[in-house]
């Protein structure tokens, strides 16, 4: 589903190189965890996958279902089925969460040549999925992410993910800012979305999220390269020994 080949990328503004040759293949149904210390390039990788324009690809390619993502705009990637759950979801003042959900869903449907959902049909979908994530109708009437608690922001991200039904979910530090209860709700939401034709890339610092969302493959990212790949037990080992073994003197 996702094939990253020798990807090199830098910040467009100051040409700082962040990714220095990443190779990664994710098949449908798989969940890959990407772990690594601060500054290793984890979030950058997620932004580049989603098409943020602050970066320049200097080498390599990203294939999504066989097609290169590099020439696609962010909204085209979204319509093609790529979803990024943000580490810091952005506030949109004055726009009710419900309105945002409907606009996003219909924009994607339109881009794929599908008809818009009727309001009753849309409401039904939202209600069911919101309930699973302990999201009240009241919260959906509030402006998107404005004044949301950390937990509310992350649950709202997962709600968007489940409504938009992407093929590839990239979760950027979804566990940050969550207490244990909220973490469980969010993880359950993510697990419900696991399916044989959907892949996930879970970016995290800590093992604790991976207790709930159990990955098939774990990668360690350091200084813009994947330096180690293993099974889920690799995460446990990292939790115990830290990143020092893999990042040398650069360890934080």
């Amino acid at each position: 589903m996702l094939e990253i080949k020798n990807l090199h990328a830098r910040i467009a503004e100051d040409e700082t190189e962040i990714l220095r040759g990443i190779d990664l293949t994710v098949k449908p149904g798989e969940v890959h965890a990407i772990m690594g210390p601060n500054g290793s390039g984890k979030s950058t990788l997620s932004y580049i996958l989603a098409g943020k324009e602050d970066y320049e690809i200097t080498e390599g390619d990203i294939l999504f279902n066989g097609e290169s993502l590099l020439d696609m705009e962010a909204d085209e990637r979204a319509a093609a089925g790529l979803f990024l759950a943000f580490q810091y979801p952005i506030e949109i003042p004055g726009v009710a969460t419900m309105t945002f959900l409907k606009t996003a869903l219909n924009a994607q449907r339109k881009a794929r040549g599908e008809g818009e959902l009727s309001t009753p049909e849309f409401m039904k979908r939202v209600k069911d999925k919101a309930a699973e994530l302990n999201i009240t109708m009241d919260m959906l009437k509030r402006p998107l992410n404005v004044g949301f608690s950390g937990g509310e922001k992350k649950r709202s991200e997962i709600l968007q993910m489940s409504l938009l039904e992407p093929k590839l979910c990239v979760l950027d530090e979804t566990d940050s800012g969550l207490d244990i209860d909220a973490l469980r709700i969010v993880a359950d939401g993510v697990n419900r979305l696991r399916s044989p034709d959907r892949a996930m890339v879970v970016i995290t610092h800590y093992q604790r999220l991976l207790d709930h969302i159990v990955p098939d493959v774990v990668h360690v990212l350091s200084r813009g390269r994947i330096v180690k790949t293993g099974g889920k037990e690799l995460a446990l080992e990292l939790e115990k020994n830290g990143y020092a073994d893999y990042v040398g003197e650069q360890a934080a």
Binding site: A74, D75, I92, P93, T103, A104, A107, Q108
Partner: peptide, 29 residues
């Protein structure tokens, strides 16, 4: 902000749809 635009676009909105949505939020009152 660029971040607001990117967030909306990541959810599937085109540039224009994103601006329209953000502006409509701004003038809602």
């Amino acid at each position: 902000s660029d971040d607001q635009m990117f967030y909306c676009q990541q959810r599937g909105l085109s540039d224009e749809e994103a601006v329209a949505l953000i502006v409509n939020g701004f003038v809602k009152d």
